[in-house]
């Protein structure tokens, strides 16, 4: 296989929690939101990151984009470790990496007309003169399926789906290589979700984008991704091509996650579902051993003692479990 376009190596991010003294004293403890994440991103693919709330998938995406600083690890892009860059040096790489936000309502400036909103990234990166920029804006509006007259409208005049198209246009207008989609459809209703997903897939093919697609929705991720990484408590526990993963989930957490999706055609009484016991443990404490040992039906003392590493069980199918 060819070289990855983006390599994420041992990425860590923890958030400090302060006591009653606030920032005057040292933090009481840390929340380990991203805890040793590794993955590679290959050109032209869609890499899905799935996991339940609090598993660190959004934080992973934001840290890669430099929206919060990391606490260890590397993100290698074009031979450069992005995490070691100063904000000023990071700027030139921002052109290649864009984010599509989750909430289309709060991510568009209410005081700007759509035209000005879309032109801003072009001005920031000093692309073209005024006329060329305007042309590019109209072109991009067309690409994402909006009308030229929308150029002069304010964001509040649009529906959620249209707003997400604007958000998409804003991310695509400077021709990025990598687009991180942070739950881009979870704020939309189901019929609009399908429209936006199909648009995303069409654009990816046409513009040869590489995407990281972050979601908690199993059916969405299955529809759109080539490869999937399953996250649990800040770790990727299983990674495989989409078809392999759905055909043969190996990690006990992946199995439980998939079985949580109701399928009334195959199993009308929902008897074969494996329901996990307990809650996701707090990631405030330092977890020893396998992050999943608290809830795993197959856990043994060995799982508590030693953290499993990712092993390639089948070609391109990696699992972090001692008993697979």
């Amino acid at each position: 296989m060819n070289d990855p376009i983006l390599q994420v190596i041992d990425l860590q991010k923890r958030f400090p929690v302060y006591g009653p003294w606030g920032r005057l004293r040292k933090p009481k403890y840390f929340i380990n939101a991203v805890d040793h994440v590794f993955f590679n991103l290959f050109e032209g693919e869609t890499y899905g990151l799935v996991g339940e709330s609090g598993s660190g998938k959004t934080t992973t995406g934001r840290t890669i984009l430099g929206l919060n600083n990391s606490d260890g690890g590397q993100v290698i892009y074009q031979g450069v470790d992005l995490m070691s860059l100063e904000p000023r040096e990071f700027k030139q790489y921002r052109r290649d990496m864009q984010l599509v936000f989750q909430d289309p309502y709060s991510s568009l400036n209410p005081r700007k007309r759509v035209g000005a909103l879309l032109e801003e990234p072009l001005i920031i990166h000093k692309i073209g003169n005024q006329k060329e920029r305007q042309e590019k804006v109209f072109e991009t509006l067309d690409i994402v399926g909006l009308q030229p007259e929308h150029y002069f409208r304010f964001p509040h005049e649009f529906s959620g789906g249209q707003r997400q198209r604007i958000g998409l246009a804003r991310a695509l207008i400077i021709n990025p290589n990598i687009v991180v989609c942070d739950e881009p459809v979870s704020a939309l209703d189901v019929s609009i979700q399908a429209q936006i997903l199909n648009l995303l897939m069409k654009l990816q093919k046409e513009l040869k984008l590489t995407m990281i697609f972050i979601t908690h929705d199993i059916s969405v991720v299955r529809h759109i991704s080539n490869r999937i990484g399953v996250m649990y408590l800040g770790n990727i526990v299983e990674e495989a091509l989409t078809d392999d993963l759905f055909l043969k989930p190996l990690h006990p957490y992946t199995k439980a996650l998939f079985s949580a999706v109701p399928d009334f055609l195959k199993d009308p009484n929902q008897k074969s579902r494996k329901i996990l016991k307990g809650e996701i443990p707090s990631n405030a404490m330092q977890i020893t051993g396998c992050p999943f040992h608290h809830r795993c039906p197959q856990a043994t003392d060995f799982c508590v003692a030693e953290k499993p590493v990712m092993r390639e069980i089948e070609p391109q199918h990696f699992v972090a479990c001692h008993y697979v």
Binding site: R94, L108, N109
Partner: peptide
């Protein structure tokens, strides 16, 4: 703290 400010920051403003 609004997401749209984060968006322009992310674009490199």
């Amino acid at each position: 703290e609004q997401a749209y400010i984060e968006a322009v920051y992310m674009q490199g403003a």
